[in-house]
């Protein structure tokens, strides 16, 4: 039964580790729901619909990069016919002035750190 104790101990460590996320939320008493993001004031619609932007802003930015850098195009026609200048700093960040109040919140929540900011100017915390 010396082995019995080892097996019981091993099983308990295994269950404790495998359920670690549950103990962590219990300890932190958090509901861990999606972060609040601060939307630009006085604006009704982003480049595309909110649903589209939530799901595909990253893909859209990659398409924009390819359009500008590889094809030399700098106009984007949105699905509702409005035209935009293709520019992260000029167009996107023109409205979303504070990355820390918008981009960074979701990015931190899901643990991504896009490479965009290694070249592009981050809208610093001056509004």
């Amino acid at each position: 039964m010396a082995d019995g104790a080892k097996v019981a101990g091993g099983l308990m460590v295994f269950v404790a580790l495998a359920c670690a996320p549950i103990w962590l939320v219990l300890a932190r008493r958090s509901t861990a729901s999606q972060p609040e993001i601060e939307l630009p004031v006085g604006q009704k619609r982003c480049v595309e619909s909110a649903e589209f932007m939530r799901q595909r802003h990253a893909a859209l930015l990659v398409d924009w990069r390819d359009a500008v850098v590889r094809e030399g195009l700098n106009r984007y026609v949105a699905s509702d016919g409005r035209e935009f200048r293709i520019s992260l700093t000029g167009t996107c960040l023109g409205c979303h002035t504070q990355a820390s109040a918008f981009c960074d919140r979701c990015h931190a929540y899901i643990g991504v750190s896009p490479e965009c900011w290694s070249c592009h100017v981050r809208p610093s915390e001056n509004p």
């Binding site: 999606q34 799901q55 595909r56 893909a59 929540y109 991504v112």
Partner: peptide, 8 residues
């Protein structure tokens, strides 16, 4: 193109 924040 999933909304990763919604999944989390």
């Amino acid at each position: 193109n999933s909304d990763a924040a919604a999944i989390k």
